[in-house]
């Protein structure tokens, strides 16, 4: 029945990621607004029953665990084939994934298999007259695209982490049904060999009370001393956006965001950083955010508490001076 809303729980090497509860909450909410039921899908190997239990004790009403040794490690073939089988059988209306390394890799392929649409990186939704609309970021976060699906279900969406509240705890315990999948791993085209952590050690910015972060707007490696000087004056650490690390101006350990560190300092100063969603997810939890950017429309100002529209090269030097004066 095209009545179910499925969410695909994020099984990260045997650990249930928090975002699973966010997409569970969203599945339930959309279900309530559109008169549909919801259920979780969980893929993996031997760990599936225990992980499914974590979902149902938190109030997810139904979890379909797809257990197969070929799903113990992620592969697009394994995930897409297993999900295709369940979806073809249950014919859901909507399937939600997290905007994650699995969502970005498997969801577009799966949607294409059904020749149906996928709305990516959604941050908001509305149901109007029974029709579902999602909002997703575009133009480096400067604009949102409000989208709807054309054609028949099953529809697909990937959901930005942190965009929706977790499923409230305390509902009645749900039920788990375990199913198998018909998979032939010897035909998988891509195979996961190992997971590596590129570099560990060195600085740890995740505990610093103050983080001063520089972005592409700092211009080059030489200019970055300004960011270090400001961090020093404030007694904090230096962070950076991804392009800064990509260009080798500072080391990877300083990267803040989706593919870097998550920081929650008392103060975060973003200098020459536009505020793309992948950066925001790493620093939105800071108590106070100051943004210095020459573009008044930069989305960083939408999360900042104090904003300065201006050239960082003109603003930072007097700022360092004033801080030193204040400290005496």
């Amino acid at each position: 029945m095209a009545e179910d809303i499925f969410f695909v729980a994020e099984n990260r090497s045997g650990v249930m990621a928090d975002v699973s509860f966010e997409i569970a909450g969203l599945a339930r909410e959309i279900g309530e607004k559109s008169g549909k039921s919801y259920a979780g899908l969980l893929l993996g190997g031997g760990e599936v029953p225990a992980l499914a239990e974590q979902l149902v004790v938190r109030g997810v009403s139904e979890v379909i665990g797809i257990q197969h040794e070929a799903l113990a490690k992620y592969s697009f073939d394994g995930y897409c084939q297993a999900l295709k089988q369940v979806i073809a059988e249950r014919k859901p209306y909507l399937v939600l994934f997290a905007s994650s390394s699995v969502g970005i890799d498997a969801a577009p392929r799966l949607a294409a298999m059904f020749h149906t649409g996928l709305a990516s990186n959604c941050m908001n939704y509305t149901v109007e007259g029974g029709e579902l609309f999602f909002e997703r970021p575009g133009f480096n976060g400067k604009l949102r695209l409000r989208v709807k699906f054309a054609g028949q279900p099953p529809y697909f969406a990937t959901i930005e982490s942190g965009a929706f509240k977790q499923l409230p705890a305390g509902g009645a315990k749900g039920k788990v049904s375990l199913v198998s999948a018909n998979l032939n791993p010897s035909e998988f085209r891509a195979r996961l060999l190992e997971i590596v952590t590129p570099s560990k050690g060195g600085v740890d910015i995740s505990k610093a009370p103050v983080v001063v972060a520089g972005g592409r707007g700092v211009g080059n490696k030489e200019n970055f001393h300004l960011i270090f000087d400001l961090a020093k004056a404030l007694g904090g650490e230096v962070g950076a956006s991804r392009p800064v690390v990509d260009s080798g101006w500072v080391e990877y350990e300083r990267q803040v965001g989706q593919s870097g560190k998550t920081v929650t300092p008392k103060l975060y100063v973003a200098c020459g950083i536009s505020g793309a969603i992948q950066h925001l997810v790493g620093m939105r939890g800071a108590q106070t955010i100051v943004a210095i950017n020459k573009d008044p429309e930069a989305p960083i100002f939408n999360v900042a508490h104090y904003g300065i529209v201006g050239d960082l090269f003109e603003v930072i030097p007097p700022l360092i001076e004033e801080i030193k004066k204040m400290k005496g």
Partner: peptide
């Protein structure tokens, strides 16, 4: 298209930053 853009929006602000 299977996903149609209905309209572009300017994002809502989370906080109104105090502009200096």
């Amino acid at each position: 298209s299977l996903v149609q853009t209905v309209e572009l929006l300017v994002p809502k602000v989370e906080h109104h930053a105090q502009m200096l």
